[in-house]
Nucleic acid binder design. Sequence first.
DNA 1: ACATAATCGAGACGGTACGTCCCGTCTTGTT
DNA 2: AACAAGACGGGACGTACCGTCTCGATTATGT
Lengths: 225, 225, 225, 225
Amino acid sequence: MTETRPGSRKPGGQANQAGEPSAAQAPERTADTSGRRPGRPRSEQADRAILAAAVEVFAESGPEGLCIEEVAARAGVGKATIYRRWPGKEDLMLDALASLEAPLPAAKGKSVREDLIALLDAMRSEAGDRRYVRLSALLLGEGTRYPRLMDRYAAKVAQPRQEIFRAVLRRGVATGELREDADVDAAVYLLTGAIMARARTSQEKIERGFCKRVVDELLAGLAAR
Amino acid sequence: MTETRPGSRKPGGQANQAGEPSAAQAPERTADTSGRRPGRPRSEQADRAILAAAVEVFAESGPEGLCIEEVAARAGVGKATIYRRWPGKEDLMLDALASLEAPLPAAKGKSVREDLIALLDAMRSEAGDRRYVRLSALLLGEGTRYPRLMDRYAAKVAQPRQEIFRAVLRRGVATGELREDADVDAAVYLLTGAIMARARTSQEKIERGFCKRVVDELLAGLAAR
Amino acid sequence: MTETRPGSRKPGGQANQAGEPSAAQAPERTADTSGRRPGRPRSEQADRAILAAAVEVFAESGPEGLCIEEVAARAGVGKATIYRRWPGKEDLMLDALASLEAPLPAAKGKSVREDLIALLDAMRSEAGDRRYVRLSALLLGEGTRYPRLMDRYAAKVAQPRQEIFRAVLRRGVATGELREDADVDAAVYLLTGAIMARARTSQEKIERGFCKRVVDELLAGLAAR
Amino acid sequence: MTETRPGSRKPGGQANQAGEPSAAQAPERTADTSGRRPGRPRSEQADRAILAAAVEVFAESGPEGLCIEEVAARAGVGKATIYRRWPGKEDLMLDALASLEAPLPAAKGKSVREDLIALLDAMRSEAGDRRYVRLSALLLGEGTRYPRLMDRYAAKVAQPRQEIFRAVLRRGVATGELREDADVDAAVYLLTGAIMARARTSQEKIERGFCKRVVDELLAGLAAR
DNA sequence: ACATAATCGAGACGGTACGTCCCGTCTTGTT
DNA sequence: AACAAGACGGGACGTACCGTCTCGATTATGT
């Protein structure tokens, strides 16, 4: 089910297993130069064509309808060329997802409120991208069946994003802009969850003002006084 | 693709199209009981067996692995008996999901805080049910492919639940427990989203105290003072 | 697989099991009048509609494509109404075949040659009827699986027809028109087979002169002098 | 419905479309061997296993009962491997039939009478093979639904066989053994038809002497003097 | 220059599930 | 009873993809 060939390699940077030790297990005859494997090197153009086709097919047919044969056909590539790179449909999808994640904007530091709104707004755009929603839904749905996949996603994609929110909030606590005893973790879930919940309730794009309202409401608290 | 037969009927109560207007087109001779279609009526036992088997198979194999042939076999039912009721895998899944949704507890009215915590706690239990997570993830992922399905879900399942939250919050505003200008909609997304976001980040059950922390943080607001 | 209900009855005259003792096993309450069964009598209109629909569907779809559901629909009849009369598809087909068989023309007696040509010409017309060819092909193909059916066909349809040929030939021997030691059986197979073989080689109708040529050739003999 | 792929190929020799022009569209670089389609070539072992299984299943279950799933299972082959070669059940059956047809014995030339008896005797053996009867009955019955099939059968199987008879008869005419004005076509139908008609009237094997009687009767002619 | 070796596109392979069709039986209320 | 209607469990149909496996052709490196 998983990696079997020694020198297996994967494109897609962010979602990889870290460090690409591909040369490590290679036969290496002479011992010195470049951890290069013998034989024809893999085509990087194929890498790109496959990922692009995967995103495209995915966006049209959804996670259930994504079909390797179609991806191969659109990429102008043999099926084996895909299976040489990814062990299966889900792993391909993970890398396709990663290729869609826009980097969150760096906190500009003016105020916690503005930073949070900017971060949420970036997520809002992604959530408006149906491709993102679907890829990420597949991931969630398949989580139990492919825990390895889920863990990699959590480690490589989800947690770094949460960390950005956490950093902004912690900085707010430090500068006194936020309460000293604010529950940073809870706040992260409240904020990021609001976008998810909103995305879920309808097919339409989330309206621009939504992020502001959410942030303000959380900052103000609901309780009277 | 969708319903074509006039008197088509679906089981699964909560997720239905409202009111079962099946009698509407029937000949109706005398007045009341006659709203009957001719022929052998559909077996309600089959309805139940199919839904039960669907949930069971689903829980074992995930949305991708859910297989109508297996559901039919376990329910002791011919495949046609399933396709007579649901046009496809996804629609079956929608009703299976609806059959899993526990009714949210009635607001007991002591305080808004306690009511909210109770509601979130009920959702937390569902979110801890992997079957629920998967079904709902599939639903989300397939949303664009099956907008009809998504709309039915929103109308029959999601919105009624949001309405319960909204009622609690509005009552809080009325009693003065919450700020007069509280953004009730934003608050609903913040609260329900927090559970979703939390469920998404790991496979483990959500800890009991999470709901309390979330509610308290939202009630207090993050801002200093 | 075969008859189970006591009072089962079949329409279709020629192909029946002889004598229709239907009243014999009926409950018979009072003991005297008319071997009538209680309850609503079977509709003879249904009998006719079913046979007609069977022939019609058959002619369109061939033996493999003949489908009871379609016959029932076209006859405006419930499926059970068919199964009440015939135990299965093949038996229905046998009666449908019998309803197609035109009676062979009575030998007019002018000469053996003319009689044979007339008989062959009648068969030629049937063989030109694709419905006949198909029904009879099904019968042949299914012979081994349904020996009972085959035997009934042989006894009720095929042998009486051969007997007509045989009678003509025997009369020819008696009148001195044919050789005294003519092998009547072989001649019957030669003549009737020629039509079958000719029908088999192409989809087109058999040309009118074919029968004459065949009869003349057989009468003359191939051998020189 | 029919062949669409350019280089489509079918096993089963005798029943093929003549000459396997598969190389025609291939790129053909050097000159000879290159008439190869790209990709993995079809397994000839699968060809053989499928045909063998088809004949076997057929012999057990008859034409109606022949079931591709069973053939695939017995041949140890995926269903797609069958459908890649034949568009449907009937076409498979045609090739299976062709694989059953024993080659007619070469005319040995001693006398027309002996040659004809030998030819009929070969057909008699086939007709005694229930598998042959059924396959050929299906073919006949399906003729109108699948005219293409029927034509191919006529062209590849039936006509070449008739030609053999015709050649024998023509030689007889040439040597003076037969009448100069003998109607060769009619004679062919008389002879081959006799076997068919005889096979049709009963389930039992045709008796050995039948062929002799038929040939002698036709040679002698029925007419007195 | 030439062997070695891993890649490429193509597409066949054994499977599994799909959604449809029809079988022959069973269950309604009506005639 | 028999009727029209139509649901039932079952099973084969032909299609679509899965992930694996040959094919001949290509493209690098290491001698």
